[in-house]
Amino acid sequence: MADSLQTGIRNYRKYESGDAKPTIEGLVKISDILDVSIDYLLCRDNWLKAHGVFFDEF
């Protein structure tokens, strides 16, 4: 994943541990790689559904 994001493994490990946060551009790359929405990454998909916003799930 670090290679795909073009970042160092130490920096990526900081993302995983919560010691650092990816930039907006980094979030977009992660969501593209994992084929999920940014809302899903940010645990906002349930909030969207609760407010009547639905999206296709595969």
Rank of each mutant, 00 (worst) to 15 (best):
M1K: 11
M1I: 11
M1P: 04
M1G: 09
M1N: 14
D3N: 10
D3R: 10
S4D: 14
Q6A: 13
Q6V: 09
Q6P: 05
Q6D: 14
T7E: 01
G8I: 03
G8M: 03
I9G: 00
R10F: 06
N11F: 07
N11V: 06
Y12N: 00
Y12C: 00
Y12S: 00
R13I: 00
R13W: 00
R13M: 02
R13E: 01
R13D: 00
K14S: 07
K14V: 01
K14I: 01
K14T: 05
Y15W: 07
Y15M: 09
E16V: 02
S17M: 11
S17Y: 06
G18L: 02
G18E: 02
A20W: 00
A20G: 01
K21Q: 11
K21R: 12
K21G: 02
P22I: 01
P22W: 02
P22N: 02
T23D: 13
T23C: 07
T23R: 02
I24L: 14
I24Q: 10
I24D: 11
E25P: 01
G26N: 03
L27R: 04
V28W: 10
V28F: 15
V28A: 15
K29Y: 08
I30K: 07
S31L: 03
D32C: 11
I33T: 08
I33K: 12
D35R: 09
V36Y: 06
V36N: 15
V36A: 11
V36R: 03
S37A: 11
D39Q: 12
Y40N: 09
Y40V: 08
Y40P: 04
L42V: 12
L42T: 04
L42M: 09
C43T: 04
R44T: 11
D45F: 07
N46Q: 12
N46I: 11
N46L: 15
N46D: 13
W47V: 15
L48E: 05
L48T: 05
L48V: 08
A50S: 06
A50C: 03
A50T: 10
H51N: 14
G52I: 11
G52D: 03
G52H: 08
V53H: 07
F54E: 13
F54P: 07
F55E: 14
F55Q: 15
F55I: 09
D56P: 09
D56C: 14
D56I: 06
E57I: 11
E57T: 15
F58A: 10
F58M: 13
F58T: 08
F58E: 10
